[in-house]
Write a protein that binds this DNA or RNA. Structure first.
Length: 931
RNA sequence: GGUUCCUUAGCUCAGUUGGCUAGAGCGCACGAUUCACAUUCGUGAGGUCACAAGUUCGAAUCUUGUAGGAACCACCA
């Protein structure tokens, strides 16, 4: 990339981005070692900086999918941080990942299987695993190319795939530890079962939807009439499950049913008798106040069953059809068919007592929308009690800082109510659970007695379906792990953490991910990190909200409002996308996406490009003209510019130019040395320095949008509009070079491509901006800088007044006259150029025209009296406006409590403002009277 | 039902221990124009900071309440 190209008149991202990324990657700029300094630098800086590092992991996108806009935001955030800390000289490691996306990928694969006319049941688990592996390999790569297009400066050779050998090894070792610690148990529990996908889900993966339904009342006849009662009427939305009823529950406080507690009722449509039990679960206010208890098909009933030691009768199979236990007539029907038949039969027997329309929430599979059936199944569970308690303890000790802060409370609240974690999934595409069950016919030789062998044993040989230990045969559990179980190890596996080996990158500096997976992922990483390593896995958490569509609605394929980040990248450029998506976004908030912000980012890139083109032009010109005419002109201008400035420290100017370099700060020895020759130059150094400080502060506090905002206004409103403009009069190439390098470096974390493209195009820069150094303090003269600030006010007022006059002046432009005004007197050429007046001259003691409303300045626009006359209305308006401001200030001072209690500085400022306004009003009034 | 958050310009959003005339981008209006950039330059209009009460010398900011909206968790026989 050494060859310098010519700047074209606009920035075309497409011409540079791919090449630049390839060059970075080829030069190894993304490796953590590229941030390591050589020994000599370390010696200069001392030990303070030398050990610093920055580590962050990427939430792994689906290996065979495409990136969506949320990934775009993730990369913009994470890569800005990484590049920022890399510029600051820290060993920066951004670790990329790819997710096997167990369920998602499985669904896609099963669909292709179906298209080929196959079903999963034709293959063994290991065959299926191998097939999906090939399928994913074929599909892989898109997402990685897209990450490159977004500019992610991640260390590709460290990419971790969620099924990599080291991940599996770590997951097995944790599982084994938990198994030994007694935290893993096999339990028959109700699981959220999708009968279409044939797998169980974690509670968190189930989607609840409010749907219209019916509440039916059914009469359950008492075996023996009690008091006035001959039957108990129960309310249910699922009559088909009545075959699995093993009790009827009433509230112990419910007077209506006190008598029947402990009695039995006849279960309709069958000959079974079931007890009436007293349980808080029955709400006297709801329905009839009596509820049928079906422990095998309802999570609440399951709990009731435990409390009353009720049997569990399963009547629905994993295929979603009724089992023989439901009775001959009903077996084989779908739940829906069965419900109809049950209702019909109940009605015929006169047991249907009522039907009421209600809205209730129903669980659905988040992928196929099938109604989730709670079914009894033996699964592996993790006892989360200790894990959660330890996590809460560390969170309460503030070991992890959250952005936004309130999410910590939300997380603790979640952990306090955390239930045991079902980690079994009936999906072949995942990490096999390393548990083997003793086979019924388990003796390999007659000499062995298998009865003493354990039912389940842990073994990592999951590539085998059967193993033999001490002559006993075991068969592998076919299930795989919940993907969140392996993902919870992400910071551990990505940083290659190992027991007993110091790891400078663990814990991570920050975990950046979506606020929507705070529970599913962040909570589990914290628990697992603490369990495995004893340390929290990251020191800070930054959670981003959802990127909503332009109307603030959630993006979804079904709504058709999905925005593809790659479309935006190709249309506006990668930098524009990054700047745009960061804009107006704060931690944890769901925010609408605005294409306008991306366009504004595109404009900034183009602006910066043109600023650079202009500066390069001046540099080239200087090289050509050095020695003759240019220098002569320059001397004249410089003399004017550096003349006595009101209130300025004269001695500073008397000594000539001040030479500044950043050597004193020692952070950035490569920064270009510069001198400041006039107040505009001091001013831009001050503004750039303020920008540098504010951006650093914002990055430390994860306020990305604000950092971008500050850079935008510094580059455009200050650097381009004032400094670069004023450099058309005073050319200071050393400062132009130094300041341009400064803004390029500061913008680089957010807009890596354009800044690198410019860096490569500039004639005097070396190397790559990606590993240049974050700017150190810029030197400037404060008084001189402040004088330029006053000059800006003057220029703005001249411009505004001229525009105001345009209505009455018929396009004529007026010159500027100055009386006792050293600031203007010393900078006539600059004032003339910036304010676009035809002339700037002294009043020579004979003021005329329209006096400008500027306190502390005696300036007039040389306007003929008839125009001033026409201008008097706007003059009166101005007096009124200033009067209002003055009234407000006076009211404040009239309050004795204010004067007494407010900080002295504030009171002084108010006083000064009042005298300034009073001054202004009297002058404006004088002007008005003079007309 | 529980937890948390939001309500500021036409739109999308900033506004960090309470403090000067509440900001930005886009949009809008008026004006400019060879020579870095029309992806430009200059100037401007537009806000009872959802509402009410309180604390305070001072509230967009803190407290309480009201109204509207959102997300997540739990439950809905």
């Amino acid at each position: 990339m050494g060859e310098k190209m010519k700047f074209s008149s606009s920035y075309e991202p497409g011409d540079f981005e791919t090449d630049i990324y390839a060059a970075w990657e080829a030069a190894g700029k993304f490796l953590p070692k590229s941030g390591v300094k050589d020994a000599s630098e370390m010696a200069v800086e001392g030990s303070e900086n030398s050990h610093k590092r920055f580590s962050i992991v990427m939430p792994p996108p689906n290996a065979n999918g495409n990136l969506h806009i949320g990934h775009g935001l993730t990369v913009a955030l994470e890569d800005s941080l990484t590049r920022y800390y890399r510029l600051r000289g820290e060993k920066s490691w951004y670790i990329p990942g790819a997710d096997h996306a167990g369920f998602e990928t499985w669904v896609v694969y099963e669909r292709t299987l179906e298209k080929e006319g196959h079903t999963r049941f034709e293959f063994s688990q290991s065959e299926l695993y191998a097939r999906v592996w090939d399928f994913v390999e074929q599909q892989r790569g898109n997402m990685e190319l897209q990450l490159r297009a977004l500019g992610a400066s991640c260390s590709w050779e460290d990419l971790t795939f969620t099924l990599d050998e080291n991940v599996v090894r770590r997951v097995y070792s944790t599982f084994e530890k938990m198994w030994k610690d007694g935290m893993i148990y096999r339990g028959e529990k109700l699981v959220n079962f999708c009968t279409k996908h044939q797998t169980a889900f974690a509670d968190i993966e189930v989607e609840h939807k409010d749907e219209p339904g019916f509440l039916w009342d059914i009469g359950y006849e008492l075996t023996e009439p009690t008091g006035d009662l001959t039957e108990i009427v129960v309310s249910t939305t699922r009559p088909e499950t009545l075959f699995g009823d093993t009790a009827v529950a009433v509230n112990p406080e419910d007077a209506r049913y006190k008598e029947v507690i402990g009695k039995t009722v006849k279960l309709p449509l069958t000959k079974r008798e079931i007890p009436v039990v007293a349980d808080e679960h029955a709400d006297p206010e709801y329905g009839t106040g009596a509820v049928k208890i079906t422990p095998a098909h309802d999570t609440d009933d399951f709990e009731v069953g435990l409390r009353h030691d009720l049997p569990r009768v399963t009547v629905i199979g994993f295929d979603g059809k009724m089992l023989p236990e439901a009775g001959e007539e009903y077996a084989g029907l779908t739940t829906e068919e069965c419900r109809k038949k049950v209702l019909k039969d109940l009605e015929e027997q006169g047991l249907l007592r009522g039907e009421k329309k209600i809205t209730h929430s129903v669980s659905h599979c988040y992928k196929c929308d099938t109604v989730i059936e709670p079914l009894l199944k033996e699964q592996w569970f993790i006892d989360t009690e200790k894990l959660a308690a330890v996590a809460i303890e560390h969170l309460e000790k503030d070991e992890i800082k959250f952005h936004p802060e309130n999410k910590k409370k939300v997380l603790i609240n979640y952990l306090k109510g955390l239930k045991d974690w079902n980690i079994s999934r009936q999906i072949p595409w995942g990490i096999a659970i390393p548990m083997f069950r003793k086979m019924d016919d388990s003796t390999a030789s007659p000499a062995v007695d298998p009865s003493n062998a354990p039912e389940w044993i842990f073994d990592t040989r999951t590539n085998l379906d059967e193993i033999e230990i001490s002559g006993v045969k075991y068969r592998r559990d076919e299930d795989t792990f919940d993907t969140w179980f392996s993902s919870s190890h992400w910071p551990i596996v990505c940083t290659d953490w190992e027991e007993g080996i110091p790891n400078e990158f663990y814990p991570l500096n920050v975990m950046e991910t979506g606020a929507d997976i705070l529970f599913a992922w962040v909570a589990r990483m914290i628990m697992m990190g603490l369990y495995v390593t004893g340390e929290v896995p990251f020191k800070e958490v930054y959670l981003h909200g959802l990127v909503l569509d332009e109307h603030g609605k959630k993006m979804s394929k079904s709504k058709g409002n999905v925005i593809n980040p790659m479309d935006l990248v190709s249309k506006y450029g990668s930098d524009a996308f990054r700047l745009g998506i960061l804009r107006g976004r704060s931690a944890g908030m769901n925010q609408a996406f605005s294409e306008n912000s991306v366009i504004s980012g595109q404009k900034l890139c183009n602006k910066l490009w043109n600023i650079s083109r202009f500066i390069q032009g001046i540099v080239d010109e200087e090289v050509e003209e050095k020695g003759f005419s240019y220098a002569n002109v320059d001397v004249v201008l410089e003399n004017e510019g550096s003349g006595g400035v009101t209130g300025a420290d004269e001695s500073r100017y008397g000594e000539g130019s001040a030479i500044h370099s950043s050597e004193s700060d020692s952070i950035n020895p490569e920064q270009y040395q510069y001198t400041t020759n006039n107040m505009g130059e001091d001013w831009i150094c001050r503004e750039l320095d303020r920008c540098r400080e504010m951006v650093s502060q914002c990055m430390a506090e994860y306020r990305f949008a604000e950092a971008v905002e500050i850079l935008y206004s510094t580059i455009w409103d200050k650097y381009a509009d004032w400094f670069v403009e004023s450099q058309k009069i005073y050319k200071n190439t050393s400062l132009l070079k130094a300041s341009l390098e400064t803004i390029l470096t500061m913008l680089h974390p957010f807009a890596p491509f354009v800044t690198e493209a410019i860096w490569q195009n500039l004639s005097w820069t070396d190397g790559m901006i990606i590993d240049s150094k974050w700017p150190s303090r810029l030197e400037y003269d404060e008084i001189s800088a402040e004088n330029f600030e006053r000059l800006r006010t003057v220029v703005s007022e001249i411009r505004a007044t001229n525009v105001g006059l345009a209505n009455v002046s018929r396009g004529e432009k007026y010159g500027l006259l100055y009386g006792e005004d050293t600031l203007v007197d010393d900078n006539t050429l600059l004032v003339k150029f910036l304010s676009r007046v035809p002339s700037v001259a002294s009043t020579n003691g004979a003021p005329r025209g329209l006096r400008l409303a500027l306190p502390g300045h005696e300036l007039y626009l040389d306007v003929p009296s008839e125009v001033v006359l026409k201008y008097r209305d706007s003059l009166s308006e101005k007096i009124l406006a200033v009067g209002k401001e003055l009234d407000a200030l006076n009211a404040r001072m009239m309050n004795p409590a204010y004067v007494e209690r407010a900080p002295a500085q504030l009171v002084k400022e108010t006083r000064d403002a009042i005298s300034e306004k009073e001054d202004l009003i009297s002058r404006l009034k004088g002007q008005l009277e003079a007309i």
